[in-house]
Nucleic acid binder design. Structure first.
Length: 773
DNA sequence: CTTAGTAGGATTGAG
DNA sequence: TCCTACTAAG
């Protein structure tokens, strides 16, 4: 069986690549997921690699789920057995399996950012440090960054009071986490890498198990993740990484674009494959996207091309303010409905969440359905976290942070004072808070009613724990926690719409526990069907699928973000651009293209690296569009309560002016391109700022005035090799026709090329190579 | 212990 | 302007 038949040549090359390091630069819409899934399918079937020896790592649960789903269709049985999961899920599982060697508790609880902050505050209090001086937020950042960079406390310089104190907090925090049997997200990777790098035998054993390693979105990996990948691939060296440096938009979160750019330096014999054919967008959309991203200096040279139709020119609209901008969306919706386009094919992107409100209000006012992706996440809601905290304490009695969270939720008369005394009792005896519930006595000042209440709370937890040990179903356990804790009753009694909504959320959570249990039971692969031979004496790794236990459920919940709600029905989508990666829509409206907002920058200060990341963000936004791309910018906009004048985004003047429709404004014509063009002047209220100005190709950015009519200009900064000459897909410029794409090449000197110019069809011209000025 | 009142802050956000 | 997080009064 072959999985390579319906692939294009570079895709096939990546899928069939035999072994050794491989880096695939996969442009937007070039069939990246396809390559990974086909490669896994090919490994498991044609090359008979046992699925459990294949490790495929992604960043989001959604991506992992999609991969498994697509695999199910390609090669049944493989997806369930292969190790497919997020970095965090894979590490969590490996840590639990090897808890002793990694020096962590095998029943650790995973703390999210909020829990982590609570723990830091507690440490701060223990160390008698002032929260104003050492802000928990900053400390969390310090610790997180250290772990991302694989720096232990002892590796950090502690010159100066501030740093020395931070390191000290870091140490104490880690100790406190250990006592609580808890790991934060950073720990999941950091602890495993520490163990792998320290314990040679452990590394050889684990790396020996994974014959093939695949990593998706490699441009988003941080340093710790790179070290992990290096360690896990160190035995077989069959490492395939896939990504796109142009779509790296998480630098602020630790993503190191260099990981993919320097892959060949890291792995000297690495093979490089570039997927440049785009199957998603029209030519004009790709052209616009390229014109912008091309201004980035530091990127792997590549250019998307497509066999899709030329399409309509992208549209740029200037509006008065954000309300006017919302009107653009309404008009777009109205027009699309007339054209019979489904509402869920329209998306509005913005740079910050704050921009969504106006769109929401406008859509609600017009009676148009919408959904917002991102924003408040289900598992982040206070009531959901409360109920989960109960379950976590049941699962892990050492989890003090979760216990303290619900100590007085619902209110049961245990206040600050009692809590303080309880903590002291636990600290003095060196026991967990849970244990201290029953033991705290008069010596800590806990007596009378307070003592009663603590004991009663302890009994509640014990009862729930017993229930769990008796093996009742997850749904039943959730219900018992909801009712037994009195939380349900307390919400009912509040009798407010908010409380009602909260109660509803909690029942939804209980429902999710039930369905998790059912799904987990159904998903366990039956070992009867095991079709692969295993090496004698070696256990196959258990599949990375959850069982129906409470621990599994909690782990899944901790590692899951917004339940990717199905796009139910006819609704316009609103989201930040960051949330848009990997998605596609027929029609895309990118809003707020104004200096300081997008690109986001502080007034008067622009870090070139920041601007390049913003430009990648614009690139991601544009390449989401299949057929129609619209952009808007406002002349003024309310920010933090006051109206401010806005300058059009520099990205707008980087667009190919001859192939864009400008309404209400057009960027000042600029003969420069590339680096110089980036600095081109902005003309917010240009000479021709009347409505509906159809763009004319006044000045095509292009070759110097001297070039002839039958010549096109190849761009060296595209990264094309002068020796190699023109290649199909490459972008060229013509004095009069503007930017076009090479469709065919006829060798010669100079070579002749067939070039497609949007709106002007194909021409055969001479290819001239010019050094960039 | 709850509730109201206010000071401060404000990109982007996976797991 | 709006939201979160903490403080002071009920």
């Amino acid at each position: 069986m072959s999985f390579a038949s319906d692939l294009n040549p570079p895709q096939r090359e990546a899928v069939l690549h035999e072994g050794g390091p491989l880096v695939v630069f996969a442009g937007a819409g070039s069939g990246k997921t396809r390559v990974i899934t086909h490669r896994v399918a090919d490994l498991a079937t044609r090359r008979h690699v046992p699925p459990w020896r294949i490790l495929a790592v992604t960043f989001t649960n959604k991506a992992a789920g999609e991969m498994r789903e697509r695999l199910a269709r390609l090669a049944p049985g493989v997806g369930e057995r292969a190790w497919i999961g997020t970095f965090h899920a894979v590490c969590a599982r490996l840590l639990r399996m090897n808890a002793e060697r990694a020096g962590v508790s095998s029943s650790f609880t995973i703390y999210d950012d909020q829990d982590q902050r609570a723990m830091i505050k507690r440490v701060l209090r223990d160390l008698r440090l002032d929260e104003k001086q050492h802000r928990p937020k900053e400390v969390a950042h310090f610790i997180g960054e250290a772990k991302q960079r694989m720096r232990r406390p002892e590796d950090l310089s502690s010159s100066g009071y501030r740093e020395a104190t931070q390191v000290r907090i870091f140490e104490e925090y880690d100790k406190a986490m250990k006592r609580a049997g808890a790991l934060d997200f950073g720990d999941l990777i950091y602890r495993l890498v520490l163990a792998l790098e320290k314990d040679e035998a452990f590394r050889l054993e684990l790396a020996g198990r994974f014959e093939h390693l695949l990593v998706d979105e490699f441009q988003d990996t941080n340093h710790a993740q790179l070290r992990l990948v290096r360690a896990l691939a160190s035995v077989h060296r069959n490492l395939c990484v896939v990504g796109d440096d142009d779509q790296s938009i998480y630098r602020w979160r630790g993503a190191e674009r260099r990981n993919i750019l320097d892959f060949q330096r890291d792995f000297e014999d690495a093979k490089v494959v570039k997927l440049e054919q785009n199957y998603r967008s029209t030519q004009r959309i790709l052209q616009a996207a390229y014109a912008v991203i091309h201004n980035n200096v530091d990127r792997e040279p590549k250019q998307l091309w497509t066999e899709n139709e030329e399409g309509a020119p992208p549209v740029v609209v200037q509006v008065r303010d954000e309300w006017d901008e919302a009107r653009v969306l309404l008009e777009l919706v109205e027009q699309s409905q007339q054209d019979g386009l489904a509402l869920d094919e329209i998306v509005t992107f913005y740079r910050t969440h704050a921009q969504s409100r106006v769109f929401e209000e406008a859509l609600r006012g017009a009676g148009v359905g919408y959904r917002i992706v991102g924003g408040q996440r289900f598992y982040d809601r206070a009531e959901v976290k409360d109920l989960l905290a109960y379950l976590r304490v049941i699962d892990n009695p050492d989890d003090d942070i979760s216990l303290l969270r619900v100590l007085n939720v619902p209110a049961r008369g245990i206040g600050k004072t009692t809590e303080g005394r309880l903590l002291e009792a636990a600290g003095r005896r060196g026991i967990s808070v849970r244990e201290a519930l029953g033991l705290a006595g008069p010596e800590e000042g806990v007596k009378g009613k307070a003592r009663e209440r603590l004991r009663a709370f302890g009994k509640l937890l014990d009862d729930l724990t017993r229930l769990k040990d008796e093996g009742v179903g997850l749904g039943e356990l959730g219900e018992a926690a909801l009712k037994g804790s009195g939380y349900g009753l307390s919400l009912e009694q509040q009798d407010s719409p908010e409380a009602e909504a909260r109660l509803e959320n909690l029942w939804e959570l209980v429902g999710s526990m039930q369905s998790f249990e059912q799904a987990a039971r159904a998903a366990q692969p039956d070992d009867e069907a095991e079709q692969h031979q295993e090496q004698p004496g070696e256990e196959p790794l258990a599949p990375l699928l959850a069982d129906a236990s409470l621990s599994s459920y909690l782990e899944r919940v901790s590692l899951e973000t917004q339940a990717d709600e199905a796009p139910e029905g006819e609704r316009v989508t609103l989201m930040t651009i960051h949330a848009a990666k990997g998605l596609e829509f027929d029609t895309v409206l990118v809003t707020g293209l104004e200096e300081e907002l997008f690109p986001m920058s502080r007034p008067g200060f622009t870090d070139p690296d920041d601007i390049e990341e913003e430009r990648r963000l614009a690139y991601v936004a544009f390449t989401r569009a299949r057929r129609r791309l619209l952009m808007s910018h406002a002349r003024e906009r309310r920010l933090f309560g006051r109206y401010r004048r806005c300058q059009p985004s520099r990205f707008l003047s980087e667009l190919p002016a001859e192939d864009v429709t400008f309404i209400g404004w057009r960027p000042r014509a600029s003969s420069a391109r590339g680096v110089t063009r980036r600095e081109a002047a902005y003309d917010p209220f240009g000479a021709d700022s009347h409505a509906s100005v159809q763009a004319e190709a006044q000045v095509a950015p292009g070759p110097p005035p001297g070039s002839a009519h039958d010549e096109v200009w190849l761009d060296a900064s595209d990264g094309c090799d002068p020796e190699a000459g023109p290649q199909p897909g490459m972008q060229v410029r013509h004095k009069k026709f503007g930017v076009g794409q090479v469709r065919g090449v006829e060798p010669g000197s100079p070579p002749k090329v067939r070039v497609r110019f949007p709106g002007r069809g194909e021409k055969v011209l001479l290819a001239t190579y010019l050094e960039p000025a």
